[in-house]
């Protein structure tokens, strides 16, 4: 009988793999860069663990479905499930990943009630933060903390990555404080996702999932702007993979 289920989240930047036992406890978590050949990477990862059933999510899920004949689920449902695993009462989920951000509203029973995703531009996504961090010369892991040290914010008004990049470059050239610009960049992402959250999930605590949830500055700005609690699990980045694993378990 099956008693270990895996979930794999193949994102644009990273792949996460989580294996849960029969009671839904995570027994393995793995993470790797997506690289140029996501399926080769995925193959290696699933080779390293043991499981009886697997479900794929993330933007590479369809490739995985073909290569490994596995069922799939969208990131939206997977993150919703994962968020519930972290916080069983969660009704609102914000997931910011590499190239997408999503606001999800859940019913009391955890089903997706409504969701919205960013449109095709990168503003308001992890990629945007990454590009801005690079332009400002910060490591992405440090970006949020550095921004938090700023005393005031330099407003970044361009929403589009391309324009924002040149705006930031010209601010640096003007001698603006880098941390203040960094704070401005965070605020611009915050405004984007806050608008989305207000449309989709206008009240109550918000569970923040995905890699960008680790960014303390963004969490703080969001909490301040919305006047709502931003809940976050240290394992937030694995929410999608965990959700997929749990859905695999529940489907068995």
């Amino acid at each position: 009988m099956a008693h270990r289920f895996a979930g794999i989240d193949i994102g644009s930047r990273t792949i996460e793999l989580v294996v849960v036992n029969q009671s839904g406890q995570a027994i393995h978590t793995l993470k790797a860069d997506t690289g140029f050949d996501p399926m080769a990477e995925a193959k290696q990862m699933i080779g390293a663990v043991v499981y009886e059933g697997i479900m794929a999510t993330g933007y590479g899920r369809n490739l995985f479905e073909i290569a490994f004949e596995a069922p799939t689920v969208t990131e939206i449902k997977a993150h919703a499930r994962g968020a519930r695993a972290f916080f069983p009462e969660a009704l609102n989920v914000l997931d910011i990943g590499g190239q997408d951000s999503k606001a999800i509203a859940l019913s009391d029973n955890g089903k997706v009630k409504k969701f919205e995703m960013n449109d095709r531009c990168a503003a308001g996504t992890g990629k945007f933060l990454e590009i801005m961090a690079r332009t400002l010369g910060y490591a992405i892991e440090q970006f949020g903390n550095e921004a938090l040290l700023a005393e005031q914010e330099t407003t970044i008004s361009s929403m589009c990555t391309v324009f924002a990049e040149s705006e930031v470059t010209s601010l640096i050239a003007k001698g603006q404080d880098r941390r203040e610009i960094a704070l401005g960049v965070h605020a611009s992402v915050m405004r984007r996702v806050a608008a989305m959250l207000q449309r989709v999930a206008p009240e109550g605590d918000i569970v923040f999932t995905g890699g960008v949830a680790n960014n303390a500055c963004l969490r703080a700005l969001l909490a301040q702007k919305l006047g709502r609690r931003i809940l976050y699990a240290p394992q937030a980045q694995f929410a999608g993979a965990l959700g997929a694993a749990l859905l695999a378990l529940e489907a068995a």
């Binding site: 969208t74 939206i76 089903k111 969701f115």
Partner: peptide, 20 residues
């Protein structure tokens, strides 16, 4: 067709939402 992948994700998620 640039956004086809993204659209597919949204539509699949919508279908999941409908199925409950």
């Amino acid at each position: 067709m640039e956004d086809a992948g993204q659209l597919k994700t949204r539509i699949e998620a919508f279908i999941e939402q409908i199925k409950g």
